[in-house]
Design a binder for these strands. Structure first.
Lengths: 335, 335
DNA sequence: TGTTTCAATGTTACCGTTTACATTGTCTGA
DNA sequence: TCAGACAATGTAAACGGTAACATTGAAACA
């Protein structure tokens, strides 16, 4: 291992001078600087990051807890996180939790052991184990999309899910739909409640019933979309419009509807959520709500890093703008 | 900061005893152990990972260089990497390179600075900068799917792309196709050459021409698929079967073909590569080659970790099995 | 010329663990 | 009763940097 001592001997200076040459070159004379840099080159020296970090007590690393790596929406968020983190000199430790609390505990505890300085949670659970909960008191943590289920208010970057689903509902009402259904994602999450409330509020204003039987789902997957449609088509009163709580569900729903011999949107309109890339290119292209995933990731890092730096929290909640994307999976209600 | 010293004072023992209690409890007497563990709990002590790592000289971390986070195929690989890494006690630093050499250099240099112990490269470039190249001599590095372009042979986990594209070609020949085209991904990569060679070899055996004009593309994206089809449809001799070098390209191709008023597969057959999740649920479902992405990620970690541990390399190349998935995007050639 | 100042560099303590080596004390066996 | 063995614990030196403080020497100024 080529360490700073070897370089200092090679250059005929002290280790402090080598360190200074690399960290604050203006404190070192021109001549010495050149000498040292030459020695660095000759020895092939790169400072040991672990050693500097243990000294500074900072790892300049953040952990990101992702429920599902294959979800392209999450990956767009992570793209933003990566970009912003790199700009701020942080690196990103990936925590693929698969929704498992044990995995979450494990990754979350990295912040307790100085392996990471902060945490971004994309799921809605409080990621620390009960045993660690009190230690986790004031740790830098930010949630994106979801809201962490705990008393203490952690900053959150989110979408106005309530308004967005109201927009979707109005969009479908404008097409004359009267029979609605929803295929929801993970139950018990904040998102679930807000989106459902948004839909409910609009339908209530119009005095349109929205029965419990027409709410199905349980996961944000294509399979959940397929199973949801199979259930809905078996009901006595078949819906003419289906809210899917993300685009994966919607893709499954469209697939299942077509497989059942029905048409989208002529027989049933389908709307999604997230606006993932592929949604624009399936048949029919999906009406959905665009979430600024990349920017959400960026903001999350900015907020987290300012927390890590101990700066005061400006806003504990940031709501980013959504955009209704009207495509061809939604249309006039059948007569 | 609660450190080991505080705990040792609280327990009335030396720091060494605290360390031993946590790392090798059998060296400590029952009574002391209990005393120490109680103090650990009372102080809310968690050992500082940075400090242990600097001592051991190991970060138990691997960097993964990903050209594109949003590609679900890469994410499946990364899922396997994550899983295997966790099992082996490693964590994963994500490096989203976007194909930029500077980004690659930056992430790759983490291995030089002890921030990570090894590197998995999903792209085909040698990720170290020219200045670092000689330092990078014997660093643990594994490439997945692609082959790293350098003299020294790094272990590689890959698919038999040649055989896989031969299988696709035979599949389409079986449907009586005579006019072929390819929409390729990144030119100059190993994958590009092997897949093209596979197709060429089959067509040559059958004495079927495969002109340069019918090879188009440049990126592994939906947009490249769309642009590719637009180009191919403008040719005097329109192909009846199109090889797409990944499923994203194929999704774009199918979209563009349908938009042009043609049918898949009645007018043009389309085949993809990778078997990403959504490929089974688009209309028509995509004929493609399944790559065991998850297992490739797992194997990459296993090979990398054994390299990190200094174990001798068993095989420098592992070829994992592919599977031809015949779905409805390919069919009999039009008359 | 003597004092002050300051830039350049060296010395050394420290970050929080781990661990080789030293010490203590108890138990065993002759 | 005492040497030897061994288990339990303490002491202190690492790991590879960084930075506060100390030292040196030359320039600046009165």
């Amino acid at each position: 291992m080529t360490n700073i001592k070897k370089v200092s001997e090679l250059a005929g200076v002290s280790t402090a001078t080598v360190s200074r040459t690399l960290k604050s070159p203006d404190q070192v004379s021109q001549a010495t600087r050149e000498k040292v840099l030459e020695a660095v080159k000759a020895a092939g020296y790169r400072p040991n990051w672990l050693a500097s970090s243990v000294k500074s007590g900072r790892s300049n690393t953040i952990v990101v807890l992702v429920p599902n790596l294959v979800n392209p929406f999450f990956m767009r968020i992570i793209g933003g996180i990566e970009q912003a983190a790199q700009e701020k000199g942080f690196s990103v430790l990936l925590g693929d939790t698969q929704g498992s609390p044990e995995r979450e505990h494990e990754y979350a505890s990295m912040v307790l052991t100085n392996r990471a300085d902060g945490l971004i949670q994309l799921d809605h659970s409080f990621p620390f184990s009960a045993a660690d909960a009190d230690l986790a008191e004031d740790l830098p943590m930010v949630s994106v999309c979801e809201r962490i289920a705990t008393e203490k208010k952690y900053p959150v970057i989110e979408l106005d899910n309530y308004a967005a689903s109201r927009a979707l509902a109005h969009h479908l009402l404008g097409y004359g739909h009267k029979h609605f259904a929803a295929i929801v994602g993970q139950i018990s999450s904040q998102i679930y409640r807000e989106r459902l409330a948004g839909i409910r509020s609009v339908l209530q204003e119009e005095q349109i019933p929205f029965e419990q039987a027409q709410i199905t789902g349980g996961a944000y997957t294509i399979e959940a979309g397929i199973a949801g449609v199979e259930h809905l088509l078996s009901l006595p009163q078949r819906p003419t419009a289906i809210f899917c709580f993300n685009d994966d569900i919607a893709i499954g729903a469209v697939h299942a509807i077509k497989k059942a011999g029905l048409r989208v949107p002529e027989d049933i309109s389908v709307v999604g959520f997230d606006n993932i890339k592929v949604s624009a290119f399936i048949d029919p292209p999906l009406t959905t709500v665009d979430q600024p995933a990349y920017d959400m990731g960026r903001r999350a890092v900015e907020v987290l890093v300012s927390q890590i730096r101990g700066e005061p929290l400006v806003r504990s909640k940031e709501v980013l703008p959504f955009q209704l994307i009207e495509r061809e999976s939604s249309g006039p209600a059948p007569l």
